[in-house]
Write a protein that binds this DNA or RNA. Structure first.
Lengths: 202, 202
DNA sequence: ATACTGACTGAGTGCTCAGTCAGTTTCTGG
DNA sequence: CCAGAAACTGACTGAGCACTCAGTCAGTAT
């Protein structure tokens, strides 16, 4: 493995678990066994290293979800939604660093001043919400999902599923047992039989 | 206003908007017009100042929700749930710093090594989720809420409502228009008519 | 008048940090 | 085998950090 890759991996792990400003370049050099200068030789600055990490995280997420879509192609839209939610939770267990880094404030703070960072975040966000939206759209075609606004419902499902991951990682509340409730809530929310006539005007 | 209070207010604002490690004691001294030593005279260390801020945030939150419970006492449990969600969103608009500080990683990181911090977070968490749970319990008594596990459903509703606030603050996605969807989702999730027989075993 | 107190000050201290750079080693095509 | 390029090194720098401490000062009790 090249030193560049080693630095990138160590940085991904450290930025995810400790955060950007609590991770020093000295730490990273120590973790990977390279000289501090090597980090700057390859990435230029600590901020650019963070952007490279974010790019790496985006690629991994996009790849993982693309692969999951290819494998399970059959089934109703509703089944696909449930699979997507389950896969999201499984991936968050297998590669926690991908989600931890998105649950920190570092990237959002940087995105306010850095256009590239903002772009990366938007791509990641669209990828994640897009999975759920795709399932909802398909579900509306085959009748397994009620005729709701797919983008907003996808956001709602995403918020719920991602919230469960957050709750688990926060360490304040035991959230592991919430899995069935979340899946059940997904089903209830999009069920074609459970929709009332809309009493809200705004 | 005493200098102690001025420091506490400035720190609440700065820790919420910039984060703990990005706020220097020099910054805080400048913001409040006191000497740097004064901060340490009153609070002892930057970490203890953070704990004082967290204590202050907890008091404000508890006070705000206690007041909202007293005012709107009538109505069904379902109506109470909707009111609680609406109040949560309103408070997040009026006093964003109370929520911003809870949406940062600082407190959760500190809570892993500091018992007092952990205690504060648990109290805040129980207060917030408790509001929703109380409404659900009442709703089950008057029949406006289905017989679900109140604690877990309260967590789910909390996750959704808080997720909306997070989404808004992240700046990546326009979330303002999601309000009606979230309220609708709350109703759907707890509706006594929308409950299917439970097909999930675990 | 004297002694004392508690709030407050700000220059100073030791330390850590991101980033630099002159120099060394490793790789690669001719 | 060699020359030049690319990769790599680690001592160094200056800025910024949390925190200290000797001392000032207004107010109060004696």
């Amino acid at each position: 493995m090249s030193k560049r890759t080693a630095i990138l991996q160590a940085a991904t792990y450290a930025f995810a678990t400790k955060g950007f400003s609590e991770t020093s370049t000295t730490d990273l050099a120590g973790m990977t066994g390279v000289a501090e200068g090597t980090i700057f030789y390859h990435f230029g600055s600590k901020e650019k290293l963070f952007l490279a990490v974010l790019d790496h995280v985006r690629r991994e997420l996009e790849h993982a979800f693309a692969a999951s879509l290819e494998s399970a192609e059959v089934g109703s839209g509703l089944a696909m939604l449930e699979e997507a939610a389950a896969f999201y939770l499984r991936l968050a267990g297998e590669k926690p660093e991908l989600f931890l880094i998105l649950h920190r404030n570092d990237a959002y703070e940087l995105s306010r001043s850095n256009e590239q960072c903002r772009g990366e975040l938007e791509k990641i966000f669209n990828c994640l919400v897009g999975i759920f939206q795709e399932a909802l759209t398909r579900g509306q075609a085959d009748g397994s999902v009620a005729p709701v606004a797919t983008r907003r419902m996808a956001l709602l499902v995403f918020t719920m599923v991602d919230g469960l991951v957050r709750l688990r990682d926060s360490g304040v509340y035991e959230a592991g047992a919430m899995f069935p409730e979340v899946m059940r809530a997904c089903r209830t929310l999009v069920s074609p039989t459970a929709q009332e006539s809309d009493p809200c005007r705004s």
